[in-house]
Design a protein around this nucleic acid. Structure first.
Lengths: 227, 227
DNA sequence: ACAAATTTAGACAGGCTTGTCCAATTCGTC
DNA sequence: GACGAATTGGACAAGCCTGTCTAAATTTGT
């Protein structure tokens, strides 16, 4: 929208800076206090601006909330796709590469500020704003899991894995590498680097035991036949 | 406190009935609206009592909230341990029995009213009441996972599974059988019976591919040696 | 049927929050 | 240095919510 001869300078500099400041503070307060408990005065104070400035920029408590969610959704999706782009398509050491990928995924998308905030807002207010979070649902998990599934399918096609349903495998991969962080996530905490690494290591090990090419394939076929 | 010759009849009947009614309504409203957004008038109306009765029984909004959380925690833990007691220690058909167990676990503990409510309250207000939820953390996930790990260890000892670390296996089991329900949980929804069954089936299949006795053991050892 | 306890509806004060308005001040730009 | 736009602090009305109080109505046990 901002079309001008000299880009990025037309709107006054600190105007946009304050807007960002307000958005950041609002995300933090909405997360901490919930929608009803979030207090515009507190947001303004935390952003270092006056209450009137908050209203000037975003008009309304509800509009402000919507802006926050859209902002977080956009940034999180961008981060997730950027990280999926680093998927090890041609792994040197499959286990080590997948562990590293899982750690990146956690650090850059799930444990970082935006990820934690968006998750909490969705959990807390998702039912109240269906249309807002339906957008997230389609753009986020839907596209993300497909993209990840495509990478796993390619890895299987190249002979590194033995996978029947790449979509299922992708979801299970994410579930496994986060298996030991659930309690921490539940309480809104931030796992340590070591916890993230251990959960990813254990998760990838089990994932490869199930989907690895070597001998697991036989066991997997046996299990399927047995069912 | 209620010491009497004829137990359970000393306090008037509908007194306790109203108390339960208030607790149920409060759980629902706290969940839906968040702590700050929960409105005592609405709780009273939803419970079919007057506002004053709510105050007579629980004294305070915060005390009421505490009572709700304690109540839910207690009931959920009881349900979880009751369900763990149905773990297939001597499986006829390991895959089918584990799938059935996973479905029971989901239906009776995670997807039911108490489970969904407690999860949402912990996520939303956990940081605000650390001592309250610390109790849950120790009594809930801590003891639950240990108990489940013990069952898996017994299954491995009996030769049905090949497990190195039962605690890790137990957490991964739960993560796998819930892998496809994450998005639904996140938005507070209730998965259909079919979704629960499919997620459990896929999860158990992968779990057995990784920890099953037949040939996966060899693959697992290979993966370990390779790391 | 009686007496005690509980419940109810409504009014009420006190406090907090949202959103608006306005005059004074500061900031960025020419 | 001067102009215009943005920001500030504060006051303000309106509404909502909590928690208390009261008198009337209802329920309970005997």
């Amino acid at each position: 929208m901002k079309v001008g001869v000299s880009p990025d300078t037309f709107p006054p500099r600190s105007h946009e800076a304050k807007r960002i400041s307000v958005v950041d503070a609002a995300a933090s307060v909405f997360c901490r206090e919930g929608y009803a408990g979030a207090n515009i005065d507190l947001i303004a104070a935390e952003a270092g601006v006056s209450r009137q400035t908050v209203y000037n920029h975003h008009g309304d408590k509800e509009k402000l909330f919507m802006a926050i969610v859209r902002d977080l959704t956009e940034r999180c999706n961008a981060g997730i796709f950027a990280t999926i782009a680093t998927f090890p398509d041609q792994p040197a050491d499959l286990e080590a590469d997948l562990v590293a990928f899982a750690v990146r995924m956690n650090r850059n998308c799930i444990c970082n500020r935006d990820g934690r905030f968006l998750r909490k807002l969705i959990q807390a207010e998702g039912e109240r704003y269906p249309e807002l979070f339906a957008e997230w649902r389609e753009q986020g998990p839907g596209r993300t899991w497909s993209a990840l599934a495509a990478r796993f399918a390619r890895l299987a096609y190249a002979g590194h894995l033995s996978i029947d349903d790449p979509d299922v495998a992708a979801r299970q991969f994410l579930a496994l590498v986060n298996a030991e962080l659930q309690t921490t996530f539940m309480l809104g905490g931030i796992p340590t680097e070591e916890e993230v690494l251990r959960s990813a290591t254990n998760g990838v090990r089990t994932f490869l035991a199930a989907f690895g090419r070597k001998k697991a394939a036989a066991a997997r076929q046996a299990a399927l036949a047995h069912a």
